[in-house]
Amino acid sequence: MNINGLQAELQAMKLEAGNTSRPATGQQVSADFGALLGDAIKSVNGLQAQSSELATRFDQGDRSVSLSDVMIARNKSSVAFEATVQVRNKMVEAYKELMNMPV
Rank of each mutant, 00 (worst) to 15 (best):
G5D: 13
G5R: 11
G5L: 13
Q7D: 01
Q7S: 05
A8R: 02
Q11P: 05
Q11H: 04
A12S: 10
A12N: 08
M13W: 09
M13D: 12
M13A: 13
K14E: 12
L15W: 07
L15T: 14
E16W: 12
G18K: 11
G18M: 12
N19V: 09
N19A: 15
N19D: 15
S21D: 15
R22I: 14
A24L: 13
T25A: 12
Q27S: 09
Q27T: 06
Q28H: 07
V29C: 06
S30L: 09
S30Q: 07
F33L: 10
F33S: 08
G34H: 10
G34N: 13
L37I: 07
G38R: 04
G38I: 01
A40Q: 02
A40N: 01
I41R: 05
I41W: 00
S43V: 04
V44F: 04
N45C: 02
N45V: 02
N45E: 05
L47E: 07
L47S: 06
L47C: 01
Q48W: 04
S51N: 05
S52I: 04
S52W: 05
E53R: 09
E53F: 07
L54P: 07
L54N: 11
L54M: 12
T56Y: 12
R57E: 14
F58K: 15
D59E: 15
